[in-house]
């Protein structure tokens, strides 16, 4: 279970990216974090594993309070949180396999990592994950030879091989075409279900958010303005989050799209 208490971040420029966010995510729940750009979605996710240091508030992962950990303890805690990035953030000049195995860096020593001598179990698990996302045949390809969708699959493997309890997913589909976006979102969802993972998926596409998550949290200017089920996103709520726009069309589209998608698969 993840719990945020009064989490806030003020950047050195004086911008309040996050203003006192309270949020509780039970084990195994997948939530979508929506909101306009600059709402603080990315900052929120990064404050949880402290890639960005929060300036206020607390983060609890289970019973562990993350915000006060020393850097050594933090590294240990980060192993419990897998992260998936917008631009995949694979190390482009390493092979797919090295990228996946880099998810185990928190568990192995420096020389082991340097010499690429990972434990047998890790290698087996890496193959298993690559097979699961359909990338087995690409294991020895270099990451910069892959397409966007393939890269994101590798990114997912890297997060999962950590054996996390929680996935932090930052705009996983922002650089992908609509079809691949859905496939990736579906894959993340399936994997969370298989493994009983909780996940925070930060996404700007309302349709995808509604299709693939049990709960939606709307963020606006660093404050939570909506927290509820996908079908609770009425035009009024969307106006509250994103501002004035004709939302009826968007919501209608959701239904059509979903049918069409079902038909295709």
């Amino acid at each position: 279970m993840l719990r945020l208490e009064g989490l806030g971040k003020r950047y050195k420029t004086g911008d309040d990216a996050l203003k006192s966010v309270d949020l509780e995510i039970p084990d195994g729940q997948v939530i979508a974090l929506i909101g306009p750009s600059g709402a603080g979605k990315s900052t929120l996710i990064r404050c949880i594993n402290r890639l960005v240091e929060p300036t206020r508030g607390k983060v609890y992962l289970g019973d562990l309070e993350l915000t006060s950990l020393s850097s050594r303890e933090l590294r240990k805690a980060r192993r419990r949180m897998g992260m998936i990035f917008q631009e995949y953030a694979l190390v482009e000049r390493l092979t797919v396999m090295e990228n996946v195995l880099s998810g185990r860096l928190g568990y192995v020593g420096f020389w082991q990592a340097f010499l690429r001598k990972f434990p047998k179990d890790d290698i087996r698990e890496a193959y298993r994950l690559l097979d699961r996302v359909g990338m087995m045949h690409m294991a020895d390809k270099r990451a910069d030879e892959l397409s966007g969708g393939q890269r994101q699959r590798v990114g997912i493997c890297r997060a999962l091989i950590q054996h996390p309890e929680l996935l932090l997913v930052d705009e996983p589909t922002a650089s992908l075409d609509p079809k691949t976006s859905r496939q990736i979102m579906r894959l993340i969802n399936e994997l969370c279900e298989e493994r009983g993972l909780a996940a925070i998926i930060n996404i700007h596409d309302v349709l995808l958010a509604q299709m693939f998550s049990q709960r939606i949290v709307g963020l606006k200017e660093g404050v939570i303005v909506y927290d509820g089920p996908p079908d609770g996103l009425t035009p009024d709520v969307l106006t509250e989050i994103y501002g004035e726009e004709d939302w009826e069309a968007t919501i209608d589209e959701v239904v059509e799209d979903e049918d069409e998608d079902e038909a295709v698969t």
């Binding site: 590294r75 980060r78 631009e87 880099s102 860096l105 420096f110 950590q162």
Partner: peptide
């Protein structure tokens, strides 16, 4: 820097980050 961030997020140490995310670049 995003590639470094990604490696950092796995719980890698500073030296491991250098070897995995910076050296290849």
């Amino acid at each position: 820097p995003v590639q470094v961030e990604a490696i950092e997020a796995t719980g890698a140490s500073r030296l491991q980050q250098i070897v995995y995310a910076i050296v290849p670049q």
